[in-house]
Amino acid sequence: MSQTATPGAGGQAVLREAEHHFDYTGRKLGMWLFLFTELLLFGGLFIAYAIYRHVNFADFHVAAKDLDLVLGTINTVILLTSSLTMALSITAMQKGNRKLAVWLVVLTVLCGLAFLFIKYFEWTAKISHGIYPASPELMKLPPGEVRFFGLYYAMTGLHGLHVLIGMILLIVMAVVIARKPSRVHSFRPDDADETMAGARPAIVDGDGKPLWKGGIIDENVEQVSVVVRLKPGPHTIQPSDYVSLENAGLYWHLVDIIWIFLFPLFYLIT
């Protein structure tokens, strides 16, 4: 009996595997169903927009001139860039490059922050001009323009809320990836209890040099097993390591694509 207990030395890999019942397709399916509900949530607003724009075509045209096309365009570019960094982050993670993945997620969050920052200035500029829901200034305008700005605030507001939720989700994901202890494997040699009594466990490298030595296994020790923590790397990455990031990415792309529709409908109809 040697004094080493190396992973895979005749034991069974058992227990405590988080991915034991892991269902990759199920997790993705659940997320896609959730995205459907988000689309329909905004769908109600898009229906209202469609009807009111049909009724007040000219008023919408006039009101849209009040929006700042430059800031809107910058925001569109920022969000599109953030979708790129998001997609790159997922690819990095799938290839096992955790560090890069974390940085790309952080970059995505910063893009979201910049977007909200600009949106904040757009809103405050409007509000300081007296254009906000039910303001006396707004009420003097024709009903079509009142509807336009009502929808503008409701739709960009709800979208902004989604950006915020997406950012929180991504910050959580960054922490999860950065700290990922990932999979834990536990090995238990079959005959450990009898044969290893009195022995001293150690981890040795390829030349037999000890890297680590443990205490003597005496009668106080009830069970001998080897627990291995596998960090996801290029060779050990598995779908369970990145499915949450993929789902967060799907959510972020949804937020992006809704903006892709909001931008022309509000800024480009002049």
């Binding site: 988000e38 607003l45 209202a48 906000y132 829901p133 039910a134 509807r147 605030y153 409701a154």
Partner: peptide, 22 residues
């Protein structure tokens, strides 16, 4: 179907609190 109810009720809430005029 439920998300449509969600956005509708949200709009009524916004209407009551802010008066968005939808």
């Amino acid at each position: 179907a439920t998300p449509i109810l969600g956005i509708t009720l949200l709009l009524v809430m916004l209407e009551r609190v802010l008066g968005i005029g939808v």
